[in-house]
Amino acid sequence: MTAETDVTDLLTVRGVRKAFGDHEVLRDISFEVPKGTVTAVIGPSGSGKTTVLRTLNALDKADAGVIGIGDLTVDFAEPVDRATLARFRAQSGMVFQAHNLFPHMTVLQNIIEGPVIVQKRPKAEALSAARKLLEQVGLEEKADQYPYQLSGGQQQRVGIARALALEPQLMLFDEPTSALDPELVGDVLSVIKDLAAGGWTMVIVTHEIRFAQQVADQVLFIDGGVVLEAGPPEQVIGEPTQARTRQFLKRILDPI
């Protein structure tokens, strides 16, 4: 027994496949994410990064493959009943590229909607938890504003707070900063760094290679519907073994 086997994997992905029509987007995705660690997913546009995240939350149901999150493992080759699917979805929280906040609700209402309406938690309790989360993402004074009154970076941080409010075991981020003006990126990334330091288990699709290097314990390079290369950032970003990875990194780090 080596030291690594002591680490429990929070997320286990085995042989996930997903096609849209006859377009096979994910061909055989396998990886695991140890509890309390951060995994950054990088790869060319259209390689299936978003689709991987969406299968982890069953926004897109995998055609085949086994996904285990915490104590719940689902085999997507079999029909999955609604109750199981709901339980599976509740294991993870999703932060979208385009935040997708509810525009007709204030910041606070956005955050307590899940806890109160879905989890049936007492409203007072949900409100005080929501205020703590807002403090955590640096937006306590925006509690009663509507999303349109916030900057893109603030909206994205509310989106993070909304996902955290449900206390999922796993947080999923799909390019949380790519729709933002450059000067707003830092605030969002620093919130994510704080979460990493706080022990959250996270999977983050990102184009911010420097950020991935700083916070990720593991980097996955996805291309052609498979995980082409996986390992610590020093390896995958520092000394990639695959030509495709090197090409991709060269293009993204040195675009001109």
Partner: peptide, 25 residues
């Protein structure tokens, strides 16, 4: 579509999503 998806990720079903998110908008 993002409104449906956001509702789904916070655990809402079809009827709740309609009532709380889609119809008000």
């Amino acid at each position: 579509k993002g409104q449906w998806e956001a509702s789904q990720t916070i655990g809402m079903g079809y009827a709740t999503t309609l009532q709380r998110v889609i119809l008000p908008q």
